[in-house]
Design a protein around this nucleic acid. Structure first.
Length: 245
DNA sequence: GGGAGTATTAGTAGACAGTT
DNA sequence: AACTGTCTACTAATACTCCC
């Protein structure tokens, strides 16, 4: 990715973050990046792995999660603040992405006692996915969440997940046939502040019971990383290892 | 009963992907 | 860049549950 494209995408994401509550269109974002909308959509997808519309929607859900946990504002007000005109649309979109309705998410303080899973399909073939979560030398993060998602955006329902006590090897048995993204995330504390570390591997395609290797390198979360929308499951659920799909 | 929130559905706009 | 078909996400309406 060249520097001009990187700066243009950064500018567009900045515009999204500043104007979450506005009716932003791809045209507006393309203008802020100083590209045609056709070229903009293409480079944005290359930089982030998702379309501009999906990225904007993910930022809206992320902001609503923050407001639900840090304020007592009603769900209706939050839906308007983050740019939805319909509470129904907001509630549906939130539930699908996060794995719980807004009120439940607030009551559970953002930690789910269950893992959102997809529907089983008859006749699906399965295969294992294994790999190792690595961190930069000199860092020592704690608990690591590793999930297997159908798209680049970590939102529910997911195919499988595991919570590791520390970075290291992981294994998903019986991953359904299809294309998946491995996303890992952990919180890293140093003397001064907390940092979210993120890693991604994919897409990987599961076609049979041949094992797929998907190592994940954790690094400080960048502005280009789509936010994690799924509410992380309670670490006490460990080891869930695989969710019924 | 009334307010708040959730779930569902039909119709629609526009974003996206593919092609030329 | 323009065109086209498909698909996704949206709105709006409605019905429902829950709780005070």
């Amino acid at each position: 990715m060249d520097d001009i494209v990187r700066r243009a995408v950064e500018r567009a994401i900045g515009t999204m973050q500043e104007q979450l509550g506005e009716r932003l269109t791809i045209d507006d974002l393309a203008r802020s990046a100083m590209f045609s909308k056709f070229h903009f959509s293409r480079v944005f997808q290359q930089a982030t792995g998702v379309s501009p519309g999906r990225f904007l929607s993910a930022l809206r859900v992320t902001e609503s999660k923050r407001l639900l946990l840090s304020t007592s504002i009603t769900v209706a007000d939050i839906s308007h603040r983050v740019g939805y005109n319909s509470v129904g649309t907001f509630s549906t979109r939130f539930s699908r992405s996060v794995g719980a309705p807004p009120i439940a998410y607030r009551q559970l303080r953002g930690v789910l006692p269950w893992v959102p899973a997809g529907q089983a399909h008859r006749g699906t073939r399965f295969g294992p996915v294994r790999g190792r979560v690595r961190v930069p030398p000199g860092t020592n993060p704690g608990t690591v969440f590793v999930g297997l998602f159908p798209s680049r955006i970590p939102e529910g329902p997911l195919a499988a997940c595991v919570i590791l006590d520390e970075p290291g090897p992981y294994l998903f048995q019986n991953v359904p046939q299809g294309t998946w993204h491995v996303v890992a995330q952990c919180l890293f504390r140093d003397e001064r502040n907390d940092m979210i570390y993120t890693g991604h591997h994919g897409p990987i395609t599961i076609q049979s019971d041949v094992a797929r290797i998907a190592d994940v390198q954790l690094r400080p979360t960048r502005i280009f990383d789509p936010p994690v929308l799924l509410a992380l499951p309670n670490p006490g659920l460990n080891p869930p290892v695989r969710v019924a799909v």
